[in-house]
């Protein structure tokens, strides 16, 4: 039997093994070395970031987590980064879910991000978990005009009238933007059709690879920012991580007595080149800062990003190898096919 024939008749479990190795080996390598591949954000990821960044601090953001553990590998990193951006920016976050398991997604992502990194945010004033509601698009349609009819209480059983940040929320029209992380139906398409289009609300969507191509036609009129699959998540994650570092440095500089505009430009420079922070602290520009502030700035510039905010970027490693394997498999499959057809054994 020739080599090509052997490949043609090979047990498909060899392909499974190759795929398993293509994903497992990079995970172990990245897990042991901590290295991730660089990410450059595409305009769609940047505009997703800008929609939330352009809104003034304290804006009301509805975050609809319409996904489940089955798609958490793709969507979990987006969800954590959305919460990180909103928390750092000081937006008020309202979480809801149209998937039964979405309620658990709200709990796990908020515990990870708010509980772990923004413990000062107060439940009921800065963020609220309104939980799951059945009914798919009918829920969106109802809250488009009457929020409380569908959500009389939050997920913890407190009446919405007793939750301070629910004051002034009568319908979806009272939110400044909608963020939807979606794994299918009901999800981003329903948010476009029943909320973003009729109410003309800025909608940012993070969705699975399966849905992403279907969402592109809605950009930019009906969907303002779109994160597709793990690549979109990695791009957005890197943008948010860079900005959080910059924003943290800026806040430290302002607290140390630096003027707002100067602090902003200095923070941008230091966040880009953290190694320069030490040299910068010796310059005249930093003279007005106390030694404590300087030390804090140097530490912030060099601080590693917490692992949970690098999840998507880590997954781009297995993604790279597995994509190359897929291309290799298709090419190999075709080679085998055309070779056997030339031999007259075409199927």
């Amino acid at each position: 039997m020739s080599f090509l024939q052997r490949i043609e008749n090979a047990d498909r479990r060899w392909v499974f093994l190759l795929m398993g190795l293509a994903v497992a080996v990079p995970i172990i390598y990245i897990g042991l070395t901590g290295k991730t591949l660089p990410e450059k954000a595409t305009p769609l990821a940047e505009s997703a970031f800008e929609v939330l960044d352009d809104l003034p601090s304290g804006s009301r953001i509805l975050l609809a987590w319409d996904f489940d553990p089955a798609s958490e590998g793709e969507l979990g990193p987006m969800a954590t980064s959305f919460i990180r951006q909103c928390s750092q920016k000081g937006h008020r976050m309202y979480f809801i879910a149209l998937w039964p398991v979405g309620a658990q997604m709200i709990r796990s992502t908020t515990t990870k991000v708010i509980g772990g990194y923004y413990p000062d945010l107060e439940y009921g004033r800065d963020w609220v978990d309104l939980g799951f509601k059945a009914g798919n698009e009918a829920v969106i349609k109802t809250i488009a005009t009457d929020f409380r009819q569908m959500f009389p209480a939050d997920a913890r059983g407190t009446s919405v009238s007793a939750i301070p940040m629910m004051e002034g929320i009568a319908s979806l029209a009272d939110f400044d933007a909608i963020v939807n992380v979606s794994a299918g139906y009901p999800g981003s398409k329903e948010w476009v059709l029943y909320a973003a289009t009729p109410l003309k609300k800025p909608l940012v969507v993070g969705c699975t690879g399966v849905q992403a191509p279907l969402m592109y036609p809605y950009v930019p009129n009906q969907v303002r920012g779109l994160l597709g699959a793990i690549k979109g998540a990695a791009e957005y994650e890197s943008v948010v991580n860079g900005w959080v570092r910059e924003d943290s440095i800026r806040k430290t500089l302002v607290a140390g007595g630096m003027a707002e505009s100067e602090a902003a430009s200095t923070a941008t420079t230091l966040a880009r080149d953290p190694d320069d922070a030490g040299a910068w602290s010796e310059t005249a520009a930093a003279a007005s800062l106390t030694p404590e502030s300087k030390a804090a700035v140097i530490a912030l510039a060099a601080a590693p990003t917490p692992g949970i905010f690098l999840e998507a970027q880590r997954r781009m490693g297995p993604q790279l190898v597995a994509h190359l394997l897929m291309i290799g498999l298709i090419v190999m499959g075709n080679l085998v096919f055309f070779a056997s057809r030339r031999r007259g054994g075409g199927r």
Binding site: M19, V23, A24, I27, I28, G31, A70, S71, E72, G73, E74, G76, T208, G209, V210, A212, P213, G228, A229, I230, K231, R315, P318, Q319, A322, H323, M326
Partner: peptide, 23 residues
């Protein structure tokens, strides 16, 4: 394009499961 995106999605899910096992 849809095929490419679908592949991308499936692999991310597998990566998440392996991460659970290894981590």
């Amino acid at each position: 394009a849809a095929f490419g995106f679908t592949v991308m999605g499936r692999i991310a899910l597998l990566a998440a499961r392996f991460e659970f096992l290894f981590d």
